[in-house]
Structure formats: C-alpha cells, structure tokens
Design a binder for these strands. Structure first.
Lengths: 161, 161
DNA sequence: CGGTTTTGGTTGTAACGGCAAGCAAACAAC
DNA sequence: GTTGTTTGCTTGCCGTTACAACCAAAACCG
C-alpha cells in the first residue's frame, strides 16, 4: 500500500458522482414508497422478488441472494412483512432446516397497488433522463461493477442454480 | 397513474443492476473502513470534504450539501467525530446561528493514514474493472441522474456559490 | 422598532440494519 | 451411531439514521 495509485481527475469525478447517487437514491425511493405505501424500498423489492418466483415462494437463502441481503436482515424484514400479513413462512418439505417465504394474496395485492407509483418514481428520478445509449452503457457498466463486487452471483440473467 | 409505462426489458435489467450496486456498495466500503480505521464511509467522506476546504473548515450547511446529508444526520456525525477528536466545532463570526466544523490535526492525520487503503478498495471494487470509456460513460450517466435526483446541487464541478 | 417568517442547527425518539451468538437439522467421517 | 462440521435461519443487542419538534438568530415587513 505504499503507492496508492491515486485516481485520475476523471475517475475521481466519476467516483464522487457514484457516491452521490448511492447516497441519494435510497432516500428518494424510500420516501415515495413510505409515503404512498408504508413500505421501504427493500420491503417492496422483497415482495417483488417473491412475486416473480414459482408459486410466489422462495427459500430464505435464495431470496437473500436475490435481494443482496444478509440472512439476518432478511429474517428481520420477513418477520415484519409476516406481521403485516404480506408474507407467510412455511417449513420446507425437502430440508427441515429451511424456511420458505411465500407471498400472500394480500401481499400480491399490495404489490399490484404499489407498483405503478414506484415505477413512475424510478422513471422520473432515473430512467427518463437517459436515452437508449445511456441505458445500454449503464447496464454494461453496472454489470462490470457487480461482477467484481459480487462475483458469486452471476447477476441472475435468467439462469438459476 | 393509469398507464405506468412499464420499463423495457433492457431498462429493467439496467435498473435491477443499479439497485444491486446501490445495495452492495455501501457495505463494501463500510466494512473495509470499519475494519481498518473504525470509520464509516460517511464519516470518512465527511473528513475528506473538510480536508479540501479552505482552512479545513466548513459551515455545517455547506458540509451537509457536499456530503448529501440532512442537517440532522450531519449534526450527529460531527458530534461523534468531535468526541473522537477529529473535528472541532467553532462559532461562525459572521452569523451567530451558524456553526463551523473544522478538521483537527488528529483528524487530518487519520485521513492521511486511512486514504490509501480506502482508495485501494475503491479501485479494486469498482474502478479497476472499468476501462477509460467506461469511466467516461459512468461519469456522464451519473451526472445525468444527479441532475434529476438533486437539481439544486450543480454537482460542485469546481464552482461554489 | 414589534411581529412574523425563514434560516441554521440540535436533540429526542423510534425504526432499521449489522454483528455475533445461538440452535437445530443435515452431512461427513470413521 | 456418535462425533464433529457445515448449513439454514433466528434472535438480541447496539449503533446509526430518519423524522419531527424544537430553539435561537437573522431577515423581512409594515
């Protein structure tokens, strides 16, 4: 670590901007969802991931991977969502250690009600300011960052282990 | 909100990746800094912003803007950093409501010790995976996102009001 | 000036997330 | 089969953050 290889001005500026986005975006998403649906973005995203799974059901571990969260965090969040009736916990048939999280009818309903407003926020705060080339570049670059940030998850491009 | 204008597959994939990065990056930065220096990334960044200011001093409001934080959050963080001796609070001469935060010698020292390791992490987890074109694209796109996310801050490209 | 509003900052409380410890089931070894 | 290890998940506690209420100084306004 003697020579830290400092960033070039361009790299530094890009980095500062990344930091700003990373700092600001969660607040923007959370505040809309909290106001309109009483959900955090993480809770919303968790429900969304469940809704796309077969039978709206996923093992905790699989759900944790899809939501990029630690087991502990997911456990807390599922407990809350269960308390509100949006999710149910069921024991896995194959592995008695495992827990399945399943979206309830109420949870699906909540998601349906909430999605349009959320998508509108995503559009207005991020996507609509970008043209097609920007989106392609963004996709490519985020993919590269993810492949070093989290090499284990092959970014779930359709395939599931 | 009748027609939510759903995202195209490409937009959706890019968006999911952005969400993943936003979810994973803070943890990656925090864990290295916490382990090696006992600092959160936000604390580090706060010290860094102070270190670049004239006389290593900034008014709370100005510092809050540079760190994209609320006054309340900054107040808590400065209180902690002050308790550790890295920052001092001084009353502003011009405006008796205002508080200045000033980096102490110990704070500057801490920053100097911590920076190389942090830069190495930024490089290895983000920058080194990108070529020059990627960095240019990233800079451009983050700039566009910021301009809609936080229109008030002209992304401090050198100029200060 | 007196009264209102706006700005600058702090503090209290409650919620969320991280960490480490814990427990139970599965697996591996022999 | 019984011992040790790993996996899957949960829980408790603590630090951090958001939100709202708050106070004080400045600015505005007749």
């Amino acid at each position: 670590m003697d020579d830290p290889r400092w960033l070039t001005p361009r790299q530094l500026r890009a980095w500062i901007r990344v930091v700003s986005v990373v700092e600001l975006l969660p607040g923007a998403l959370d505040s809309q969802l909290q106001r309109d649906a009483g959900l955090t973005h993480f809770e919303y995203f968790t429900l969304a991931m469940l809704s796309e799974a077969p039978h709206c059901t996923l093992r905790m571990t699989a759900l944790a991977r899809r939501t990029n969260s630690s087991p502990a965090r997911l456990s807390h969040v599922i407990a809350r969502l269960q308390g509100r009736g949006f999710v149910e916990r069921t024991a896995s048939a194959e592995d008695r250690r495992a827990t399945n999280a399943e979206l309830t009818e109420a949870g699906w309903q909540k998601l349906v009600e909430t999605a349009p407003g959320h998508v509108a926020t995503v559009r207005s705060s991020v996507i609509d300011g970008l043209d097609d080339a920007d989106v392609a570049d963004l996709d490519r670059i985020m993919g590269r960052i993810l492949s070093t940030l989290d090499p284990t998850s092959r970014q779930r491009d359709g395939s599931e282990a």
